[in-house]
């Protein structure tokens, strides 16, 4: 037992929950500040209703950008066909140009060669924009744990909803779409951009 350093008066440190992020909004996207009832003072009654209408409009007419990569793209096509009609939720307008889309459904495995293309398409989308990672390969690399597949699309773009499955059936994709719509209506902010270093630093990641 060596010399003990002078012990500081022990004060109970407030317990920090490491799973609560330090900041709630993304650094690269316009911060979606709480509006309406989520505001600290309850919000102005008139603006609350307007923002509710805006969010209802945004969630009910999400226009996906066509980003079907592999097998999940076929189930995405089935989701837009007549049996599982994505048009019920206002999302049947698959825009080929990312400039006109606000939702990117990354359907399929992302290979290393395709990753810069994905990021470029994501950057070309105007705000507000959301990303659904459809399928196991988009969520975490899926069956393919190897040199050629990016282990999860969230290494490249910020993902709002993950839909597991290989491939997920169209009704699972529609469930994921519904979750995203709820997220939009509840003003939940987008996750931080993985390519922005500072935004990915949270409590507990010391490197």
């Amino acid at each position: 037992m060596g010399v003990e350093p002078e012990a500081e008066p022990t004060v109970a440190k407030p317990s920090v929950n490491p799973w609560v992020p330090v900041q709630y909004y993304s650094n690269t996207q316009a911060p979606r500040l709480p509006r309406g009832l989520s505001q600290p003072d309850g919000g102005n009654i008139l603006l609350t209703q307007v923002s509710k209408v805006i969010d209802w409009g945004r969630s009910s007419s999400l226009w996906p950008a066509t980003f079907g990569l592999a097998c999940c793209a076929i189930e995405m096509m089935s989701a837009s066909a007549s049996r599982w009609d994505i048009s019920r939720f206002g999302a049947e307008v698959f825009r080929a140009s990312p400039r006109q889309a606000d939702l990117m459904i990354v359907a399929g495995r992302l290979s290393v060669k395709m990753a810069p293309v994905l990021r470029r398409i994501y950057d070309q989308m105007p705000e507000p924009k959301w990303v659904i990672a459809m399928g196991a390969c988009a969520a975490c690399g899926g069956v393919f744990n190897n040199y050629a597949i990016v282990q999860g699309v969230d290494k490249v773009v910020p993902v709002d909803v993950y839909v597991p499955g290989c491939p997920p059936t169209p009704d699972m994709l529609l469930h994921g779409l519904n979750l995203l719509q709820e997220k939009i209506r509840n003003h939940k902010p987008n996750p931080p951009d993985p390519l922005d270093y500072a935004a990915t630093r949270y409590l507990g990641s010391e490197d």
Binding site: V112, A115, N146, A148, I149, V150, Q151, K155, V156
Partner: peptide, 14 residues
Amino acid sequence: ISGFSLPDPHWGGQ
């Protein structure tokens, strides 16, 4: 099979 480590951010491989 897992490729070689790539600088952060990783596009792929481990």
